[in-house]
Simulated assay, not measured.
Amino acid sequence: MKIALWLSLFIVFYAFFGYGILLFFLIKIRRAVKGKRVPPAEDFASLPTCTLIVAAYNEQDFIVEKIKNTLALNYPAGKVQYVFVTDGSSDSTPELVAAYAEIKLMHKEGRSGKIAAVHRAMDEVTTEVVVFTDANTFLNADALIKICRHYADPKIGAVAGEKRVHADETADATAGEGFYWKYESKLKTWDAELHTVVGAAGELFSIRTDLYRPVPVNTILDDFMISLLVADEGYRVVYEPEAYATENGSESVGEELKRKIRIAAGGIQSIVWLKSLLNPFKQPVLTFQYVSHRVLRWTVVPFLMILALIINIVIVVSGYDSILYDVLLAAQIAFYGASLLGWILESKQIKVKILFIPYYFCMMNYAVIRGIFRYSAGKQSAVWEKAKRK
């Protein structure tokens, strides 16, 4: 039981923190041997032609602001095109997009899901590079330049931008979302420097057009799948933190939970479908990164957290004479107690920021369990259902 307890705690710690620590030292070693990876210079003349695709479903509250943000992006004239796909939208989103001659509107009645809309748009793309971004996120002015400069290297197949979550002073426990993405950004930076990013976020990412592989229309995490299929073909997926998409945090913890459950279900689906990435003999570094950064979190970690608590209780109750296990149990109870208190206070609209992180961490792992069971039961639809944002 003691072995099971320490092994469980080790895997949980490794998945969220240990891997980051290990990455830090691996990067130091790589820099000492090969030097630091540096992004290429911004040579406007050599930037590839680019198409920006936005899939928008009933986004009338945000779409005009998104259009203005898009048209204000810096990129050489004549090298960029904008495509907005509004399939199935029943509000005024298509009409609002149609008012801008600079943007190509693609619209049809009937909702088939985000990835079906993206596939339809990709059939029209003729540029060397395609950039995907969400309708309710806003990019920094140089985002396209910062992303597309990387394609000067033929080994680069995709580029992931940074997701930033804006949390104001009235933010509730979803402020933990912002902290989480800051930590994820650092891990992705190190992942890219070691070898490759393992999965891009749909808020902002790009691929070489000729590397685009249509994923099944029932794919839940299309952005993750598309970018990892590029990595599976031997190309690097790099991370560009100077190209970022900003969005508000979820409207409530309930909305964030809904989003996390969907991501967890999609994570299990991706693991099942991308079996080749688990083969360490094909691309050992990619497999190491993929398992360490993604697979452990989306499979065993939440269950090992529960197992560690139960085993620790049994050891202490059985009278094992060691203060170490008493302290360990007290630490676990304190952590979960802080999470529970955060949940109670959030339900009463009381803001205690120190409780945001344990509450968000536990909510995130609870969502993984829910997502696993939802996917196993075949109840997770691939039709994009966005979380309400502030």
Rank of each mutant, 00 (worst) to 15 (best):
S185K: 09
K386L: 10
P76A: 00
V159F: 07
I21M: 08
E184G: 13
S276F: 01
K188D: 01
I354Q: 14
D61E: 13
K2Y: 13
R374E: 15
Q269V: 14
F281Q: 09
I350G: 05
M122W: 13
I21W: 08
N248V: 12
K260A: 12
H293M: 08
L274M: 10
A158E: 01
Y180V: 12
K114P: 08
L296V: 00
F138D: 05
M305K: 12
V130I: 11
K390N: 14
G178D: 04
I261H: 02
R31G: 04
V131N: 07
Y366G: 10
A158Y: 00
G18M: 11
G202P: 01
G110R: 07
F44N: 11
R31E: 09
R259A: 12
M122G: 06
L221A: 06
I53Q: 11
A143T: 01
T126M: 02
I63C: 01
T70G: 10
T287K: 09
V129H: 01
V131F: 09
I315D: 00
Y82W: 09
G176Q: 05
G378A: 01
L9R: 11
V317C: 03
A99R: 11
K155V: 02
T93R: 01
H119R: 13
P40W: 02
E109R: 06
M364A: 15
I354D: 08
E109W: 03
K258I: 03
Y360E: 04
Q349T: 03
I115W: 13
I21Y: 08
I156G: 03
I372G: 03
I357D: 09
L278V: 13
A99S: 12
G18A: 11
R37S: 15
D172H: 07
V197A: 06
D191N: 15
P358I: 08
D191I: 12
R111C: 01
F356E: 04
A245G: 06
V230A: 04
I369E: 05
M122P: 12
S318K: 09
F288Y: 11
N365P: 02
D61H: 09
L96P: 03
A45T: 15
G254S: 09
G337F: 04
D222K: 04
P358Y: 07
V198R: 07
